[in-house]
Amino acid sequence: MSAALMEARDLSVHFSAHRGVARAVDGVSLEWRRGEILGVVGESGCGKSTLARALLGLVSPTAGAVASDGASVDGKAALRELRRNVQMIFQDPYQTLNPRQRVGTIVAEPLRVQGVARGDHDARVRRAMEDVGLEPGRFLDRYPHELSGGQRQRVAIAAALVLEPDGLICDEPVSMLDVSVRAQILQVLIELRRRRDLALLFITHDLSLAWSLCDRLAVMYLGRIVEHGSAVDVIERPQHPYTQALVAAVPVPSAEARIREPLSGELPDATNVPSGCRFHPRCPRRFEPCDSVDPPLLPAGSDGQLAACLLHDPQVAPDAVA
């Protein structure tokens, strides 16, 4: 088996805040395979964006390690090589593009930073733009303010692709876009994966989207992965009470009326992580040891599916298995 494109090994990112230490990412191990679309889902503040940033070394891990192609990413040279091979796009295409640069300059920037020979720039910029459905002739000389939201996100993707990376981390890339534009951008990404075997790490709070787009899915809660498995299994047959609540909260555009009970309360502060299972204060199915035992990821449901919940520990909850 070939090594994963990227891997987090027991990764933690802690920040010092007013009220103590915020455990944004708190012991995450995750494998992102080559050519795979991996989704990371969870509520705002669960640590999914911090995890993505830590993978690219944009924030320094407090503990644990990041590996690329099986080799630990250590030192400046390794980081530089990683950032050529794995790119990132962000949620807000209005804020990530330099307003004073033309599209052609923006897309060529990574080539300059990585020191690619000047003579190659033009052809590579044009190819990247064509890959995302932007005609170079029409768009090369435009400024970001002359573009629609969807076109700006295409420019951001083109700039990310110009170095022909193996992986692209997408942090909520379509959550600010309208339905029809959103579908167009997703089609661009799916097409890139099909044609170039581009691996995507998709960070989103949109569970329907994660379900339809991703191969595998990790659900995060307060800095931890609480469930992990194939996207279809995790969303259609969730095994962790938190995932079950998340899925139940998704509004469905359907002809049938539905009654649901939303999860009560809010995500606790990352400076004040509850004891035991961090979800226990909000969990509708908590039982005796949940406030004192921090559950590891345990086999649950289908093949390879994991859930960090004591309901799946036959020794603690022999009768309660979901």
Partner: peptide, 12 residues
């Protein structure tokens, strides 16, 4: 153009 969980995963 909206995916519906449990429906088709194929993107329209």
């Amino acid at each position: 153009s909206l995916p519906v969980i449990g429906g088709s995963r194929e993107m329209a």
